[in-house]
């Protein structure tokens, strides 16, 4: 089945005065994607998000939307910082967003508050919330009205580890259970890697690469790390059998580069009565891939 396009940017350009910020950016986001925008500060991520949400107009190019953008609240947003009234409670802030979208107050206000863990804040003013609580309230506001798309710029900024896990689980739940398409950016690449299914790498206003999680994981050379009791002997045996292995110290281990059949190397160890205590495969992670892609683009 063909993917349903939700957002398609073609030749997107944006300049502030004479300074170009986006240069001929193209990307497609399909229904159900969690699309991670990756790039350093000033690369153009936020500008893309602001254009997607209507906060700014592009100076060139156009965007096709696969959903009815005129419908109020079709896209929930959290851009740069939560847009909330500091002198109102969490519940009142949600009520304002309900009115903003032309919705009637109902039980879903409490459900959303529970979902983001702010159900017990009572009449406490949002201005007195911690950064994490404010962030969660921002996400709650973005969720009002069952949007088809969530555009979230740094949504886990300022959250504690528990908060990060909760928000991540929440976004995954929204994506999987409600089929909400999510466009997200974050400086915490390890977190983004756990969430996103597709990535767009931006550097200096250019979309330099689009790829899936699978492509990232299988982009680089695989590495197997083995810990055992006779490291030197095992390394020699592996080399003798034609494996590209290396003895690494501190912590002591043997590494094997490239695609390896685990049964083969296990048999070698068993025959030599070497006891393997740990064995794991390391795939290319988002951080390494990012450095690779962005570094390559800078060269």
């Amino acid at each position: 089945m063909e993917d349903q396009m939700m957002i398609k940017a073609t030749g997107l350009c944006k300049s502030y005065g004479r300074k170009p910020v986006l240069k001929d950016v193209n990307f497609t986001i399909n229904k159900g994607d969690i699309y991670g925008l990756v790039g350093k500060n000033g690369a153009g991520k936020t500008t893309i998000m602001r254009i997607l949400t209507g906060l700014q107009e592009p100076t060139g190019g156009f965007i096709d939307f696969g959903y009815d953008r005129r419908k109020l609240g079709s896209a929930g947003t959290l851009i740069e910082m939560p847009s909330i009234y500091a002198n109102q409670s969490a519940e009142d802030n949600l009520k304002f967003q309900y009115l903003n979208l032309g919705l009637k107050f109902d039980n879903s206000i409490k459900e959303i508050l529970e979902l983001v863990g702010l159900q017990n804040t009572g009449s406490k003013k949002a201005g007195k919330f911690s950064l994490g609580m404010r962030q969660r309230l921002g996400i709650a506001i973005a969720m009002v009205g069952d949007p088809e798309v969530l555009v979230l710029d740094e949504p886990i900024n300022g959250l504690d580890p528990q908060g990060i896990i909760e928000v991540r689980d929440l976004l995954l739940k929204l994506n999987r259970e409600k089929g909400i398409t999510i466009v997200i950016s974050s400086h915490i690449l390890s977190e983004l890697a756990k969430l996103a299914t597709r990535f767009g790498f931006i550097d200096d206003g250019h979309m330099i690469r689009e790829c899936t999680t699978y492509e990232i994981e299988h982009a680089g050379e695989k590495l197997m790390i083995i810990k055992c009791d006779k490291l030197q002997e095992y390394n020699s045996l592996l080399n003798a059998r034609g494996f590209t292995s290396e003895l690494i110290s501190n912590p002591d281990k043997v590494t094997i580069h490239g695609e390896v059949d685990i049964i083969d190397i296990a048999m070698i160890a068993r025959d030599a009565q070497i006891k393997i205590t740990d064995l794991r495969t390391v795939e290319t992670n988002l951080e390494e891939f990012y450095v690779d892609v962005v570094g390559g683009s800078q060269k």
């Binding site: 949400t53 209507g54 906060l55 953008r69 005129r70 419908k71 109020l72 609240g73 079709s74 896209a75 947003t77 851009i79 910082m81 939560p82 847009s83 909330i84 009234y85 500091a86 002198n87 304002f96 967003q97 903003n100 979208l101 506001i141 555009v151």
Partner: peptide, 17 residues
């Protein structure tokens, strides 16, 4: 001015008004 200071005006724009 609070609409600008607290940023809620952005919710109005992004909502589609």
């Amino acid at each position: 001015g609070r609409n600008f200071r607290d940023g809620f005006i952005r919710n109005m724009i992004t909502a589609g008004h």
